[in-house]
Design a protein around this nucleic acid. Structure first.
Length: 596
DNA sequence: TTAAATGTTCTTTTT
DNA sequence: GAACATTTAA
């Protein structure tokens, strides 16, 4: 099988593929075939260097990228490709924590809180420690916490470093926030990284397992990694020294998510012997487009110049069109697309309409509908963030782990069952007082063990009904596969009936159906394990993962999500003051943000 | 005390 | 147009 896959590469790509030993930094310009280089690198290791795929690890930016990588490797490596570890940094860490989390006292059935859950947890924390959400925006507080964690500073660290009033307040919230999460056996996105790092630094034998397993480790989109991610990669390859990172400082667009471009500098000082390989030939774009991009980005103050070039044609010039408002803009774009398709020059899947913020998609959706142009929208109101989906997910989480306070508070009165604000805050007070979860507290109230509450019979009755419903589902959970469990939950909790009264009843029912179908791949797994796997999957999935290429429709997508994709024709819309760049990066006063 | 109805505020990019 | 806050009816 030592086929000629290497012959299809240019000399620079080939060198990147064959330089497998020791630390390597590949500075890969846009459209330079870096995905191809990484996959071929893995193939080269297996076929030429006789490394088992079991001993190779690679982390990508999205699940989509890792799936594509595997798909490309299957024809080269056959079924062996299956034992390769490829995934996002978060799913990679999640795997480690499920296997070795017991070192840290973690339950291996932990759930992963997404941003909605995190916000709920922050709000709850603020309530618990008596801080007015009007004075301190929960979102800002969360981003401070998240920022701290992604720099490997946990609550204890934050608390000891706090230096002003704001940090003092955050510190209080932070403490409670961590309590809530740990009580609920939940980890947030940052915890996945932080705890993995903690595990690998504090427990030598745990670290050793992974250091021995991974002889070769690769990190894609290295410019988008944060400090925690880089540290983990470094520890994993401490013994082997075979760490290969691929990135491009010019394509760093995630610093607001704590991606730290200084990782590239640190890499060079941490691994002074590292080979640095540039990939500068661009296969994606025409010369004109490359020139335009270059002329913009060279205006940036802090950057090392790259010599991007292409042997592609000059291509057509970039055309600029002006519209009176977003409706006219959408109409013009869609008309233009229709014209090109009608001439049989292109098919719908060749087109992408890109914009800076999701809200801009609406005018294009409307125009598509009006002119009958099929479209695929990436992102926006995310499937797994829809209300009905989050509700059922919360029920499932509660079935798995009743101590999950955030999930319980979300659905305790959905559908309405007579457990209102007053009742819930009383239960919450009792729970705080006894340092117990909401679920336990409800049981102690309904069973009469706790009488220090001020709840009437009506409320206790409602609580009783709720608890017996959840308990019944818990008892059934062990004998049902995930799809059956979803069906039973929707039925027994009265959620189905509740949806029937909703104004968007049909659409929401369809979403539930789709949700149920998406659990199919876990239905063959043993009951509890299937539930855990399914819940993890939906937490770590990203919008771009559901994007389907080759469908006969145009693509509506944010600039951020379009990273790594290719389209023959692209419309960049809303290029106006305040939108691109966004007003928030103008305001911030930091030139870096504006440059980004 | 809860549930429904009405009013108000806010809205970058996301694993 | 969704999330949140406040008012009103039951």
């Amino acid at each position: 099988m030592t086929t000629n896959f290497l012959d299809q590469l240019n000399p620079a790509q080939r060198e990147s593929v064959e330089s497998v030993d020791g630390p390597v930094l590949i500075v890969a310009g846009p459209g330079s075939g870096k995905t191809r280089v990484i996959t071929n690198r893995i193939a080269y290791l297996v076929l030429h260097q006789k490394v088992s795929p079991y001993n190779i690890g690679a982390v990508t930016f999205t699940n989509k990228a890792s799936r594509e990588m595997k798909d490309r490797l299957v024809p080269l490596l056959g079924t062996e490709a299956k034992i390769l570890t490829v995934g996002t940094f978060h799913s990679f860490c999640s795997m480690i924590l499920r296997r070795s989390g017991q070192y840290l006292g973690l339950s291996n059935n932990f759930v992963i809180y997404d941003d909605d859950d995190q916000i709920s947890a922050v709000k709850q924390s603020m309530k618990d420690v008596d801080i007015d959400p009007k004075q301190f925006n929960p979102r800002t507080v969360l981003s401070t916490i998240s920022n701290s964690k992604s720099q490997l500073v946990n609550y204890e660290g934050f608390n000891s470093q706090k230096s002003n009033y704001y940090e003092e307040v955050v510190s209080k919230i932070f403490e409670r926030y961590e309590e809530i999460l740990s009580q609920s056996s939940a980890l947030d996105f940052d915890d996945l990284l932080l705890k993995t790092h903690q595990l690998l630094t504090e427990f030598q034998d745990a670290a050793k397992i992974y250091q021995t397993k991974f002889h070769y480790f690769m990190v894609d989109e290295f410019q988008d990694t944060n400090i925690a991610q880089y540290s983990i990669a470094k520890i994993i390859s401490e013994t082997s020294r075979n760490l290969c990172v691929v990135g491009d400082p010019d394509q760093s667009i995630y610093s607001w998510r704590n991606a730290d471009i200084r990782n590239i500098l640190s890499f060079q000082s941490d691994f002074p012997e590292a080979k640095i390989l540039p990939l500068e030939q661009n296969y994606r774009s025409s010369q004109n487009i490359l020139d335009a991009a270059k002329n913009i980005i060279t205006k940036n103050q802090q950057r090392v110049d790259k010599n991007l070039w292409t042997s592609n044609d000059k291509g057509s010039l970039i055309s600029i069109d002006e519209a009176y408002d977003e409706e006219e803009e959408a109409r013009k774009v869609i008309k233009e697309i229709q014209g090109l398709v009608d001439n049989d020059e292109y098919s719908l899947s060749d087109f992408a309409v890109m914009y800076r913020v999701n809200a801009q998609s609406r005018s294009f959706e409307m125009a598509c509908q009006r002119f009958g142009v099929p479209y695929q929208i990436v992102g926006g109101v995310k499937f797994y963030h829809r209300r009905e989906i989050k509700d059922i997910t919360s029920y499932l989480r509660l079935i798995l782990n009743s101590e999950d306070d955030i999930s319980l508070s979300r659905i305790v009165n959905v559908p309405p069952r007579g457990i209102g604000q007053r009742t819930l805050s009383e239960v919450s007070r009792i729970a705080r007082q006894n340092n117990k979860s909401l679920y336990e507290s409800i049981i102690s109230i309904t069973s009469g063990n706790n009488t220090s509450h001020q709840l009437g019979n009506r409320a206790i009755n409602s609580l009783n009904q709720f608890i017996s419903c959840i308990d019944q589902l818990k008892n059934s959970a062990g004998n049902l596969d995930i799809m059956q469990l979803i069906d039973l939950t929707v039925l027994e909790t009265g959620y189905r009936k509740y949806l029937e009264t909703d104004e968007n009843s049909e659409e929401r029912m369809e979403n539930v159906q789709e949700y149920r179908n998406s659990s199919r791949e876990y239905s063959s797994v043993p009951a509890l394990e299937g539930l855990v796997g399914f819940l993890e999957g939906i937490s770590l999935i990203s919008d771009i993962d559901t994007f389907e290429e080759g469908i006969d429709s145009i693509t509506l997508i944010t600039l951020h999500q379009s990273k790594g994709l290719e389209f023959p024709i692209v419309f960049i819309t809303g290029m106006e003051e305040g939108l691109l760049p966004h007003i928030r990066s103008l305001d911030s006063g930091s030139p870096e943000e504006l440059e980004e």
